[in-house]
Design a binder for these strands. Sequence first.
DNA 1: AAGCAATTTCGATGACGGTCGTAGTATGGA
DNA 2: TCCATACTACGACCGTCATCGAAATTGCTT
Lengths: 123, 123
Amino acid sequence: MSFQGVTVTRPRTAARMVEHPELSQVSMQQVMEALVDPVRRGVVAQLAGAGEDMSCGRFDSPVSLSTLTHHFSVLREAGVIRQYYVGTTKMNTLRAEEMQERFPGLLSAVLAACAAEPGPAAA
Amino acid sequence: MSFQGVTVTRPRTAARMVEHPELSQVSMQQVMEALVDPVRRGVVAQLAGAGEDMSCGRFDSPVSLSTLTHHFSVLREAGVIRQYYVGTTKMNTLRAEEMQERFPGLLSAVLAACAAEPGPAAA
DNA sequence: AAGCAATTTCGATGACGGTCGTAGTATGGA
DNA sequence: TCCATACTACGACCGTCATCGAAATTGCTT
């Protein structure tokens, strides 16, 4: 790795950090925009259905990997999911309890509707 | 009024009819798309807050009248509101109970979030 | 019949967002 | 040290949608 002509050694063990917003800083508009996309709802539904954290690569989705990355960051910036690295893989968790505090009933209602409307593999 | 060169008399008393979808025909995607727009959420919030039907012209909104007309039809086609004519004015009602049946908790959660986040006059 | 008030339709415009492929970065293992 | 794996950043493309103003429609009132 080089920077301005100087070889730079990168930190050996510092895990890559991911920025997450406080849910108090997240607007309803952001959350609605995050949840209006069917691919993103599919991700959220799969995450809720799995009952455990999932790595980015394990999701069933109709779009390319780079597009999926984009969707993950939208969800993260809207406070819907939390992400953390484990080695080279990035894990995802629903911030369900926090969302429930911030926007009571919203995520639950969306998830319930997703479950009731399987559609194209919920993705 | 003329049609193919023939003068047509229009019905004298038949109220103009408005088409409304069965809520069973409405997809979650449609509802989400209807509710993601802040102007439309403002309309819905005002309607819920008023406690009575409102004519189109009485809404507080930052957009032009013709744009507002567009938003009303999006809400109607998504099954969120019901519209009917009274003379030259068009009245609007929330289809709250029906929505509750079709997508339990969804509209309520959105309305609660709207109320908690006044923002720019909820519009 | 004429005019007014309420709402709609139409066409144009501009911005935004989902999508992709390619190239890049980080980590773990051979 | 080198490679494979997992994800990300960038730039481009393109369709969709909110917005507007102007003109049209409808019904009430005079």
